[in-house]
């Protein structure tokens, strides 16, 4: 579904993403993890056309989409959400979602009807006429998701949809994301909450200081020394193995 090869982006002297290559198979849920500032959001921004890449290629559904504008990529069926939610504050929930449904339908009434259906699908049916700026954090995260879904994507890039949610809300969000995948949409997500990654993702890619350092199933990833070091610091993995070995003796 998505094939990224050799994607690189510099900001001045800072190498934000270096030579990133990864593959997201159709129908899967794939996660991208890494410490703060690793370049995850920049990688998403390049894939979705918001930030031009210095080199490398993005192939979506068999077509090269490198260098296309975000609205063109969205129309092809690849949509992103924002880590910092970006609601249309003074518009109602229904109107917010209708901006997404309008991508596929010109008629206003039909777009609003479809928006209602999408909002209900993510559990916002009772908030339809509420202005977006009056929503809670959890509500805004859901709205972000609903709007993206409304564009009828084939691939959904979710940038930290779990952040700021309490455990109940998170369980609900996990259920929703899984439902989206079961509805035939491939999901590629950035996530810090490891519990969510473990219960959702089939494959995990680890990004550290702009480089992809590991890939595997969630359980494998957590045991890889380079991943542990990326999160906890140099030498930690060695000490942990030594400790584990000492404990076994």
């Amino acid at each position: 579904m998505l094939e990224v090869s050799g994607l690189t982006r510099r900001f001045g002297g800072l190498l934000a993403v270096a030579d990133a290559s990864l593959h997201v198979p159709a129908g899967s849920i794939v996660a991208l993890v890494g410490p703060n500032g690793a370049g995850k959001t920049t990688l998403f921004a390049m894939i979705s056309g918001f930030v031009p890449s210095d080199s490398g290629k993005v192939v979506f559904a068999g077509e090269d989409v490198t260098g296309l504008g975000p609205h063109v990529i969205c129309a092809r069926g690849l949509v992103r959400t924002f880590q910092v939610v970006q609601p249309f504050g003074r518009l109602s929930v229904r109107e917010n979602v209708a901006v997404g449904t309008h991508l596929r339908v010109a008629d206003r009434r039909e777009a609003l009807a479809r928006a209602t259906a999408v909002a209900e699908r993510v559990g916002m049916g009772h908030l339809l006429d509420r202005p977006a700026q009056a929503l809670t954090v959890a509500g805004r995260k859901r709205l972000e998701l609903a709007r993206a879904l409304a564009t009828e994507p084939r691939l959904l890039l979710l940038d930290e949809v779990m952040a700021g949610l309490n455990p109940t809300e998170m369980t609900e969000m996990i259920r929703i994301v899984r439902g989206i995948r079961d509805g035939g949409v491939t999901v590629f997500l950035i996530e810090h909450v490891m519990q969510a990654v473990a219960s959702l993702a089939e494959r995990v890619h680890v990004l550290n200081q702009g480089r992809l350092i590991a890939e595997g199933a969630p359980a494998e990833i957590a045991r890889m020394p380079e991943v542990v070091e990326a999160y906890l610091g140099h030498g930690v993995a060695e000490r942990m193995t030594a400790q584990a070995a000492g404990g076994a003796r």
Binding site: F50, G69, V79, Q86, F88, G89, A98, V99, G100, A111
Partner: peptide, 20 residues
Amino acid sequence: AQLMAIRENEDAAQALGVDT
């Protein structure tokens, strides 16, 4: 609808496929 989306948040509008 697309113009109001641009007024409220141009980046978000673009992300949703609006040719701003």
